[in-house]
Design a protein around this nucleic acid. Structure first.
Lengths: 151, 151
DNA sequence: CGGTAATATTTCGACATCGAACTATACGAT
DNA sequence: ATCGTATAGTTCGATGTCGAAATATTACCG
């Protein structure tokens, strides 16, 4: 459209794809936020709770690896979850550098209260794509997400 | 039960697609950040500068609409850009509620210094996808991003 | 053993981000 | 003109996010 950019065909195609990908995830997340399926917790907090719910108790660092966030960020998010009694920290007895994070009963209940509506919202949002379109999108994302791993 | 089975299949497919989409953009952005093509400015700041560069001076609210961010966020980001003399605020003479945001010479220079490398990085990242795969991805993202317009 | 490296987490400062409440200004209907 | 509402931006408080430096602890190695 009114892009004053005068680049090669490959550049324009890439920029177009990049813009659409970015806007797609932006507006998807913004619509999901509007549905308010998470109630009074934040997306980051839900990501941590969900990881613990599906994968079991983990080291704080492992949680960060699962949700793709930095260690210092994990400290902050888990601080808030602990303050709200949704998780519990437990220092490892053998290796005292390590902290294990566990869901509390309240935390488990929170995930189970949220999950069905959250999944229903996702299914509804993705219903604009057919099954094969979703699989196609997943495949392309997987490829792009992995990157040129064989550098 | 067939109903439950189909529902679960749809849910699993959607969840899989959602996870891959999320991880794709996450790791793509993280790799782009690692390349450090933006130098000493943040991605948000670059988004604002780039919008002003390609579309010309705009109202602060218009900038927020372009980069899909809230008004209060625009105040913050533009504050920092103004502090670094990359943009200039100018209150409208007729409607004194409005603030026009302009690129300074330093701002223009900054964009022009960054843009080529930034685009090259994008092209390189997207080179794991063929031209038709990129177009396919762009189309799927456009559809998913638009959502059920009936809303 | 003892000293250095590696690892896990926290702290700190800077920036981003939002929504709600607030200020200032403009506009529309009566 | 005036009142009420709508609009543009700012302020505020909370959260998220990062990287660098600090802390604590363990592991390695000569």
């Amino acid at each position: 459209m009114p892009t004053h950019f005068n680049g090669s065909r490959a550049e324009m195609r890439t920029l177009d794809t990049f813009i659409k990908l970015t806007r797609c995830t932006n507006s998807l997340f913004s619509r999901l936020t509007e549905r308010n399926t998470l109630g009074d917790i934040t997306p980051s907090q839900f990501a941590v709770l969900e990881a613990l719910y599906h994968l079991g108790s983990m080291t704080q660092g492992e949680v960060g690896a699962k949700v793709l966030k930095s260690g210092s960020n994990m400290t902050t998010v888990i601080d808030n979850l602990e303050r709200d009694s949704l998780v519990r920290r437990e220092r490892d007895a053998k290796d005292r550098r390590v902290i294990h994070v566990h869901l509390t009963e309240a935390g488990t209940g929170k995930v189970e209260a949220i999950l069905p509506g959250h999944i229903a919202a996702l299914v509804d949002e993705f219903s604009v794509l057919s099954a094969s379109e979703q699989q196609s999108l997943a495949g392309l994302c997987k490829k792009l997400g992995k990157g040129k791993s064989s550098k």
